[in-house]
Every structure is written in structure tokens, then in C-alpha cells.
Amino acid sequence: MVRIGQAIMLHRGGDREEARNRFAALWQETDPDADLFHRCTIAHYMADTQDDPADELAWDLRALAAADALHDGHRQGGEHQLAVRSLYPSLHLNVAAGHARLGNEDAARSALARAREKLAALAADAYGQGVRAAVERLEKQLSDGAAAPGGPLDGDGGAGHLP
């Protein structure tokens, strides 16, 4: 987690390429069956470092797949399940925003509905309020037709990628 945190700090500090390189190395080092929480976290943040919206969505989907495997409890115990439960709304939101950026409105709406279903897991803190507000913004943008390529979601982050 320390090395993941360091890569996150690099990204937040503006060194997107080095963060991407470090996340890629961490991804290669983690075991797909034993390190699900770490892989979820790495993929979640790796998505933020991508230049291509399709690549960003692919990493968001990897994060969601790792969270699903962890949440289902088929491979690991419950020590990280609470953290994953509170991460689900953001994971689904990011998948929705990715689909929207690529013009896949039906997929975006479906993922956004799943994000909305998971909002109850969020605390009434700044993080929870931020995710809820981002869900509302993306719903409005989709209803306003902003999901089409070239629309407001195309390239500017739209609903935003949340931790």
C-alpha cells in the first residue's frame, strides 16, 4: 500500500507518466488471485493516468472485477470488504463515465444505476457527498445529451474520477 500511495502522490503532483509506470509495475507484481484489494486499488488509480478513454474504461473495469471477486469472498477474507463496499459507488460511477465518454449511453446509464444502488454504503462525509454529487452531475449530463463523443464528457473528465 505504501508504494501504491507513492504512485498516487506522483499522479496528484502532476507526474502522470511516472505514476502510470509505477502502477504498471505494481500491477505486474501483484497476484491476480491473492492480491485482489491491491489490484482493485491499482487499477482504480491507473485508470486516472490513461490518455485514451477506452484504456481508462478498461482499467476501471479491471478495478470493478477485482472488487467483485473480493466482495464475493470466493478468494479472500473479509478484512477489505468494508473498504470495497464503500468504493463500489465510485467504481460504478467511473465505469459509467467511461462508457459515456465513448458514447455508450445505455451502458453508461446501466453502470450509473448500479452506482446509485450502492450509495447507501457511503458515509455522510465529504467523500460520500462528492460521489453523490458526481452521480447527480453525470445523470444530468446524460439526460442533457452530453455523452455523445465531442460532448462535455469527451476529454474533460465529466463526472470525474473519484478515489
Rank of each mutant, 00 (worst) to 15 (best):
1 M>Q: 14
6 Q>A: 14
7 A>L: 08
7 A>H: 05
8 I>F: 14
8 I>M: 15
10 L>Y: 04
11 H>G: 13
11 H>Y: 13
12 R>D: 15
13 G>W: 13
14 G>F: 12
15 D>Q: 13
16 R>N: 12
16 R>G: 14
22 R>N: 09
24 A>F: 02
24 A>K: 05
25 A>H: 09
26 L>V: 00
26 L>C: 02
27 W>V: 00
27 W>M: 10
30 T>D: 08
32 P>C: 01
32 P>K: 02
32 P>A: 03
32 P>D: 12
33 D>K: 11
33 D>A: 13
35 D>T: 06
37 F>W: 15
37 F>I: 00
40 C>E: 08
46 M>C: 07
46 M>L: 12
46 M>R: 04
47 A>T: 04
48 D>C: 09
49 T>E: 05
51 D>M: 10
51 D>Y: 07
55 D>E: 12
58 A>N: 03
59 W>V: 00
59 W>C: 07
60 D>V: 01
68 D>T: 14
68 D>I: 07
69 A>Q: 10
70 L>D: 03
72 D>K: 11
77 G>E: 02
83 A>P: 00
84 V>F: 01
86 S>H: 05
87 L>I: 04
89 P>M: 00
90 S>K: 07
92 H>Q: 13
93 L>A: 02
94 N>R: 14
95 V>H: 04
95 V>P: 00
96 A>C: 05
99 H>R: 04
100 A>N: 01
100 A>H: 05
101 R>M: 15
101 R>A: 14
104 N>K: 10
104 N>H: 15
106 D>C: 05
106 D>E: 10
106 D>V: 14
106 D>P: 02
108 A>L: 05
108 A>C: 06
109 R>G: 03
110 S>N: 11
110 S>I: 09
110 S>W: 06
111 A>K: 02
114 R>P: 11
116 R>N: 11
120 A>C: 08
121 A>S: 13
122 L>H: 08
122 L>I: 11
123 A>F: 08
125 D>H: 06
125 D>Q: 04
126 A>T: 15
127 Y>S: 01
129 Q>H: 11
131 V>P: 00
131 V>T: 06
132 R>G: 11
134 A>L: 01
135 V>E: 01
135 V>W: 04
138 L>S: 02
138 L>R: 01
142 L>P: 03
144 D>Y: 05
144 D>Q: 14
145 G>W: 05
146 A>P: 04
148 A>V: 12
149 P>D: 13
149 P>V: 14
152 P>R: 12
152 P>T: 05
153 L>D: 10
155 G>I: 08
156 D>N: 15
156 D>Q: 14
157 G>T: 13
157 G>A: 10
158 G>P: 09
158 G>M: 06
160 G>D: 14
161 H>P: 07
162 L>A: 08
163 P>C: 13
